[in-house]
Amino acid sequence: MNKALYALLTILFITAAAFGFGSKKYGKPLTLKEKTKVSVILANPKNYVGKKVLVEGTIIAVCAKRGCWMELASDKPFQKIKVKVNDGEIVFPMEAKGKKALLEGEIYEISYTKEEAIEHAQHLAEE
């Protein structure tokens, strides 16, 4: 799998975690102190799968219908990472777009077949 596709499938999955932007805080309190750059994760995602990280970045997209995912811009241009929560656990507001977020969660790798990837992309487009 090439790096670009792998990066696309690297997801920061927020479970027992928290994030905040501006003065708003969501979920449970942050536990990590040391931040990991998104670009460092995306450079070698396999090293981070299953690990808990604290990342910071600008929120560039939010799930409009359910607020169940968002995308965080990397510290380097042309990169982003997907952030997901269990539906309903935290609801990301659309007003968060363009704001800085500090969030904690676990890195997951999701593997798709070509058909599953197309289906997933269609599902996201519908949202």
Partner: peptide
């Protein structure tokens, strides 16, 4: 609020 270049 911010400006981002998501791709080239």
């Amino acid at each position: 609020k911010d400006v981002v270049y998501p791709d080239s």
